[in-house]
Design a protein around this nucleic acid. Structure first.
Length: 173
DNA sequence: AAGACGATCCTG
DNA sequence: AGGATCGTCTTT
């Protein structure tokens, strides 16, 4: 048997954000490093950020150079620097003009969005990269497998209700 | 031009 | 509990 190495395309990402967030748990993130070596990681935790109405979503603050990529169709990378230190990895979701994304919060062995970015050596140039064609970052399909639990999102208290209570964080049980 | 602060992590 | 560290957005 050969391993399943089906690369996920725009048709997977350009769907309902919460659905994509849930389904991304267990999928395989593949990073080709500048030195040429390849590492594969199982995605263990994600969060959904759902459109301009979701006050926890950066796009709710408006269309700016930073949030621009989220307004496009699903399948591209949204990265941003937080606390002057950590690059957060997001996958843009949904159709065009519906600014939403899924934050990759954890990979097997690398728990936490800051650790994910550090491990993958993300930086500014990943902004807008197309997951369908990028030579250095891709996501491959994988069997559903593990049980997945939903919980409120982390670090978004400023958004208030009902956004703080939405169970839009997904992780392996 | 200056200030506030963040979808975090590590150390003490 | 507090510091690191800086891009982005808001206010002057």
């Amino acid at each position: 048997m050969t391993a399943n190495t089906t690369r996920l395309t725009a048709t997977f990402f350009a769907r309902d954000t919460v659905m994509v967030a849930r389904e991304l748990v267990g999928k395989t993130l593949v990073r080709v490093f500048p030195e040429g070596h390849v590492r594969r990681y199982r995605i263990t935790e994600t969060e959904a950020y759902c459109g301009a109405d979701d006050l926890a979503c950066h796009a709710s603050k408006g269309r700016t150079p930073r949030t621009e990529v989220m307004f496009g169709a699903g399948g591209r990378i949204y990265v941003y620097l937080i606390y002057g230190m950590y690059w957060m990895l997001n996958v843009v979701t949904g159709p065009e003009e519906e600014p939403s994304a899924v934050l990759i919060r954890g990979l097997a062995g690398f728990d936490g969005p800051g650790r994910v970015g550090r491990e993958l050596r993300l930086e500014r140039s990943f902004y807008g990269e197309d997951l369908e064609t990028s030579p250095r970052l891709r996501i491959e399909d994988a069997p559903a497998g593990k049980h997945i639990v939903a919980a409120p999102r982390i670090g978004i208290g400023y958004a208030g209700e009902p956004w703080t209570s939405m169970n839009w964080r997904f992780r392996e049980a």
